[in-house]
């Protein structure tokens, strides 16, 4: 059970900062900074720069991503922005437009 859930009907316009896991089912516009896992679920809309630990995306994400861990773009994900992470997977069925920087 994730400690923080931004539900499907909810919109946050501004800055979200969290130490622990974040699950986004709704909409976030602005900035999303998590120290731990961030999940952007199917149906979620994030128009924000995202800083996270492990990041998994199944929804829509517009913005630049920086993760100190892995980024998984799952089937159905739609991501527009640059991704900086140590590891990345882009599943069959994920849409992605942007640069990948794996710090090599």
């Amino acid at each position: 059970m994730a400690s923080t859930v931004i539900g499907a009907g909810i919109t946050i316009e501004g800055e979200v900062v969290a130490e622990d896991e974040i699950v986004v089912q709704g909409t976030v516009r602005g900035k999303l900074h998590g120290k731990d896992r961030v999940s952007i679920e199917a149906g979620a809309v994030v128009e924000a720069d995202v800083v996270a630990g492990p990041l998994q995306v199944a929804g829509s994400l517009t913005g630049n991503v920086s993760s100190h861990d892995r980024v998984d773009l799952q089937p159905g994900a739609r991501v527009i922005g640059n991704v900086k992470a140590t590891r990345i997977t882009i599943a069959d069925g994920a849409q992605f437009k942007g640069n990948v920087d794996m710090d090599v």
Binding site: G9, I10, T11, E13, E15, E19
Partner: peptide, 15 residues
Amino acid sequence: TVLSASVRIRGRLSG
């Protein structure tokens, strides 16, 4: 929606 103790939001929350 649950915003745990470590979460800080600056902005508008609606819905």
